[in-house]
């Protein structure tokens, strides 16, 4: 049980990182990014390639993969999302980003085939024993890395001019535009940031789990549950949502059976929606990050 909680909390960090990108994209543009899972997997493949071809450690590869994925994210926003009409952008964007996910899946399965890959560094199986409980070293580092990345994201949003512009457009896009915020630029950079968090999380994901080009379906369903649970557009909510879901999954897996662990997501999600349709931290008005 305690072992399950420890595992859950450590895993939650990675999910919080992926989900924060997802919720950031939604907050800025009202776009539900169905391609977030595929972007995570693409990030995992990139660091897999760097590791197998050049021996670059996945943790050290993160600056490179985030830079690449930032570019990919900006490109997706400029090519596919900007042309959408404002009035039914939310509905269409779900479809467009789903198509982007399929496109990425197709590209990945052509480039890396569909068999499972995993990144096997020397320290994958190392662990510490604290008070009789095992703590996997990789998961601990992954957790710390996620905390650092989330902290950076927080600083970026709270302490910089760009962050202020982002928060302004989340709260009131019209006023932000009137005050000289370039909405298109914010949207493009915002999507890039979301993709960059996916890349960072992807490097770690590749260390923790085996993955293939179809893995993004599992991932996106979990990510969507997390952001809906936390309330779309709230980064704090994304963190709490991933804690709730990842801990309950790990506990169910260790207490009952791993087979039923994925179901925990959906049971938690449906029961929360029954009580609070807008999620734990969602607000009726447009949220604040």
């Amino acid at each position: 049980m305690v072992q399950g909680v420890i595992l859950g909390v450590l895993t939650a960090g990675v999910y919080a990182l992926m989900a924060s990108g997802q919720t950031l994209i939604f907050g800025i543009m009202r776009v539900v990014n169905m391609a977030q899972g595929a972007m995570v997997i693409l990030g995992a493949y990139l660091s897999y390639q760097l590791f197998t071809s050049f021996g670059v450690d996945p943790f050290l590869a993160i600056p490179a993969t985030t830079a690449v994925m930032f570019t990919v994210g900006v490109a997706v926003q400029l090519i596919f999302l900007r042309p959408l009409h404002q009035d039914d952008r939310t509905q269409l964007s779900v479809l467009v980003t789903f198509a982007v996910a399929l496109l990425l899946e197709g590209v990945m399965s052509v480039l890396w085939s569909t068999s499972d890959r995993s990144i096997n560094t020397g320290y994958v199986n190392a662990s510490w024993t604290v008070l009789g409980y095992q703590i996997s070293l990789v998961r601990l580092w992954a957790f710390l890395l996620s905390l650092v990345a989330l902290g950076l994201l927080h600083v970026l949003l709270r302490r910089t001019r760009f962050g202020r512009a982002v928060r302004a457009s989340v709260q009131n896009p019209e006023s932000a535009r009137l005050l000289g915020v370039d909405a298109d630029r914010i949207a493009a950079i915002g999507f890039g940031l979301g993709a960059a968090t996916a890349a960072a999380a992807g490097s770690v994901y590749g260390l923790l789990y085996p993955f293939n080009s179809g893995s993004h379906y599992d991932l996106i369903s979990q990510l969507l549950s997390i952001v809906v649970l936390g309330g779309l557009g709230s980064i704090g909510g994304a963190v709490v949502g991933s804690l709730v879901i990842s801990v309950s999954t790990a506990v169910v897996a260790s207490a009952f059976s791993p087979i039923w662990a994925p179901m925990t997501f959906f049971v938690v999600l449906l029961s929360v929606l029954l009580i609070r349709p807008r999620g734990l931290f969602g607000t009726a008005a447009r949220g604040a990050l």
Partner: peptide, 27 residues
């Protein structure tokens, strides 16, 4: 339950339905 939410969240809730079904069929 699902229609307590609006368009975007509804899309998400229904897609989780899909995975619930798949998980059940597998398990």
């Amino acid at each position: 339950i699902a229609m307590r939410t609006r368009a975007d969240v509804f899309a998400i809730v229904t897609i989780t339905l899909l995975f619930v079904g798949q998980t059940l069929a597998f398990n």
